[in-house]
Nucleic acid binder design. Structure first.
Length: 362
DNA sequence: CTTATCTATATATGGCCGTA
DNA sequence: TACGGCCATATATAGATAAG
């Protein structure tokens, strides 16, 4: 089924939740697609403000929507298709099986509070229905004077807030998160996102290895360094859709003794993974590589010269033209500078005209 | 010396992508 | 939409090496 890209615009671009959430709900050792599906859907359920009155509200996600959200997308002839093959359906089942059992065990009380009140699948119609629990996991605590020490919290509050500025939350871009290849990269990214404005994390080995990365088997634990190095390597190369690097650097060191140690992460503070912080560019030039075909470049923007009202729509071009196009962009940027001298401006415009005359011959 | 950790390697699994 | 080849990832294992 074709999944138009426009349809995808209504989805949340940012996944956001209370910092307490991971400590309360452990999603278990999901595979990479399971991680993508889980966080994408939780992202969609954010700020839904269900009412627990009689009209029970559940959210419905069709399989192709889930594939689109999770980034399981196939490109063909410039169109994007949601890939809902047998393997992806298996990932959806994995997500359902894992998340159905996710619950919070309230300390001291023998009470299990599930994350989801509804988590059902309709294989015939190809959709799932989801509703986050509204149970109270934390009762209100008052001091002797009746002041609220700890506010009452429901499960849904971990994902809903009237005013997020009032709560401790973390957030990250959905697309960029789902572009990560390994589950460990994603888990580490969640952690770094929590400290995006600090750039430093010092946490116990247990917290990093068991709670965050879920290295819950002897084999995984033995390979912890390789796993962490690989995840850090992938995150270090992470770029947003515009091509900006998210992290300038990420360094991991162990502090303490060999038996009792902490992980220390030092990294550049980051914001460019959040779509709202990515400035609109006039377009981009992307290298296209296809098997058994000469490489070409795909340009995604229009240029217009003063002699013609018709903009040139440049799509597929050679490397030579791609270079010129990039230079036109640079000249355009420079021309926006108000402090240019008359001479500089004339020269830049001359250059621009020259480039465009070459491009108009394509 | 004992034990934990590291490195290299093997194998299974699952994702990607082109083709039918 | 289904299939299959190819490649990256996940996991396990053994021998080498370093810490205590």
């Amino acid at each position: 089924m074709i999944f138009e890209e426009k349809k995808g615009e209504r989805f949340q671009k940012v996944i956001k939740y209370d910092k307490q959430m991971p400590a309360i709900f452990d999603f278990g050792d999901l595979d990479a697609n399971g991680e993508r599906i889980t966080y994408s859907i939780l992202g969609e359920l954010r700020d839904s403000f269900f009412t627990s009155e009689k009209n029970e509200t559940v959210s419905r996600f069709y399989f192709d929507e889930i594939a689109f959200l999770a980034g399981n997308i196939q490109k063909r002839n410039g169109s994007k298709y949601a890939r809902v093959d047998a393997k992806f359906k298996k990932s959806i089942d994995g997500f359902l099986d894992n998340l159905r059992n996710v619950h919070y065990l309230v300390p001291k009380l023998d009470k299990r509070i599930p994350l989801f009140a509804t988590l059902a699948k309709d294989s015939q119609e190809k959709f799932i229905e989801v509703k986050i629990s509204e149970e109270i996991y934390q009762r209100e605590v008052l001091d002797d004077f009746g002041n609220v020490l700890v506010p009452e919290k429901r499960v849904i509050d971990l994902f809903n807030s009237i005013n997020w500025a009032d709560s401790q939350y973390l957030e990250f871009g959905r697309k960029i998160h789902n572009s990560l290849k390994s589950k460990y990269s994603m888990r580490l990214y969640h952690l770094l996102a929590e400290f995006r404005s600090t750039g430093r994390i010092i946490k116990s080995s247990k917290y990093i290895e068991e709670d965050i990365l879920k290295l819950n088997a002897p084999g995984k634990l033995k390979n912890r360094n390789a796993i962490i190095d690989k995840a850090v390597e992938e995150l270090s190369e992470l770029k947003n859709e515009k091509g900006d690097k998210i992290f300038e650097f990420i360094n991991v060191t162990k502090v303490g003794t060999k038996k009792d140690y902490q992980y220390r992460f030092d990294f550049s503070k980051f914001t460019l993974d959040l779509p709202r912080n990515v400035k609109e560019s006039s377009g981009g030039v992307e290298k296209v590589l296809k098997k058994n075909q000469p490489e070409y470049f795909r340009a995604n923007f229009q240029i217009q010269d003063e002699f013609s009202n018709e903009p040139y729509n440049i799509i597929d071009i050679t490397e030579e033209y791609a270079l010129i196009l990039t230079q036109v962009q640079e000249v355009n940027t420079k021309l926006k500078d108000e402090h240019l001298t008359k001479f500089e401006r004339t020269e830049l415009e001359k250059t621009r005209r020259l480039f465009i005359s070459v491009l108009s011959k394509i």
